[in-house]
Design a protein around this nucleic acid. Structure first.
Lengths: 243, 243
DNA sequence: GAGTGGTCTAGACCACCGC
DNA sequence: CGGTGGTCTAGACCACTCG
């Protein structure tokens, strides 16, 4: 129900109410929901407020409108599922695998480097270099090298990067990641990579490089990471929109 | 200027006017634009209408708001640039390369197949199988096999798939593609692939598989394509949002 | 305190759809 | 035709930011 005294905006309460209504009644995709005027009258609110709630649900891909006909429930979930920038740990959990990590190396880099470039840093800024072997269900999947600026992280210990680096940034440091740019190519493993990943000469690997940026309207780069994935155990899945 | 007699909505005219204002005055990212009340008064329209225009520009990533401070211009382009589902031709042009195509094979498949599964078809539906070698600046880049349902395309000729298949679907058939789901993995080329791509044994390749869906609220699958890319000449670039 | 965006109201007219 | 979403108005009060 809508509570006009609540600190939460009415349109937001209505959004939640509509979402709940859909899941509770188990409404199927393409079933109509009540009209905007019905919602307005039922809750004693303005139609414009109803529209704001519905607009948000439409842009979340939960509803769609048809002029002259009504508002309907979208095809399930699909539209929300546009693939998100996700960490290795999140990715593995989504695949119903248990992620784990072995830290190989932790260093500090000073002076010019490719990472300084990618992270848009000055020459005398310090960069952490963290090399981790990532496993799923205890099987090696990827060898990952993270570069991240010391001035944004402060002091870090091995403990803090033993699990999800994104989780550390977001939950412990309160940094919010907005977007990432990544490239994916195929290659053959180097001998060091072969050792850690337990693969043979001429086994192909996927090389993913990513730069992630903060949600601070300056788009500050927060990490540059290069990951080598075993091609026999990993495949990228991406959902994309057109236009 | 805003024309209230125009058939175009006022908010849309204002959107265009603001975009033009930004590019004409060459306003830098993070500069403020006039307040909502200023726009309303200046054009003799309601503030809610101004808000609708600005909301649209915000969701297009052109502007951002800051409560109590104002509305500002976003960091250039970046936010709009979330990578789009694009065809080989579009992709190559974006990389300033000239795409071309050699058709290797055109067939019709009947009976059960992996493509029938991916395209959600019945057993006795006919599927076109089109194999094309894709080149950029006359260098072979990818070997591409498209599966697409005959019942949605009708009769097709080699001429029609000599250039961009997406362009053919969209411009000639008036079909609108909404989204695609793709996977990317690394592999070694088969001997047939090696021949067409002019690569050697043990040269790695990228294998991309994609299913594309129409914008028809049923999300009808319109193509399943498997492409083999030369790893030395091609790399996927993807921009993604988080949360 | 003055100005900003965030929310909300109670109407209105329109174009479109299906019967 | 009646009902729908699409657009628009002319106000209002709020929370927030900044000088």
């Amino acid at each position: 129900m809508i509570n006009k005294q609540s600190k939460l905006p009415i349109y937001y309460q209505l959004e939640e109410a509509i979402k709940q209504e859909i899941s509770q009644k188990g409404l199927a995709p393409h079933s109509p929901i009540p009209s905007e005027r019905e919602y307005a009258e039922k809750h004693g609110i303005s139609r414009m407020t109803v529209r704001q709630a519905i607009n948000n649900l439409v842009s979340q891909g939960i509803l769609y409108r048809a002029r002259g006909r009504g508002t309907f429930i979208s095809e399930q979930k699909f539209e929300q599922d546009i693939s998100q920038l996700s960490s290795f740990s999140e990715d593995m959990r989504e695949r119903n695998l248990t992620p784990s990590t072995k830290i190989i190396k932790m260093d500090e880099l000073i002076g010019p480097s490719a990472a300084h470039d990618k992270l848009n840093l000055k020459i005398n800024d310090t960069v952490y270099e963290i090399v981790r072997l990532r496993l799923a269900n205890d099987q090696p999947i990827a060898l990952e090298t993270i570069f991240t600026p010391k001035k944004l992280l402060g002091a870090i210990t091995e403990k803090q990067v033993e699990t999800s680096f994104y989780q550390y940034l977001e939950n412990d440091l309160g940094l919010s990641i907005k977007r990432g740019f990544q490239s994916i190519e195929a290659s053959l493993a180097t001998s060091e990579e072969m050792t850690y990943l337990q693969i043979k000469k001429n086994d192909p690997v996927l090389v993913m490089q990513r730069t992630s940026f903060l949600d601070d309207h300056l788009g500050t780069p927060i990490e540059f990471v290069k990951s080598i994935y075993r091609a026999d155990r990993y495949k990228f899945n991406i959902e994309m929109n057109r236009s």
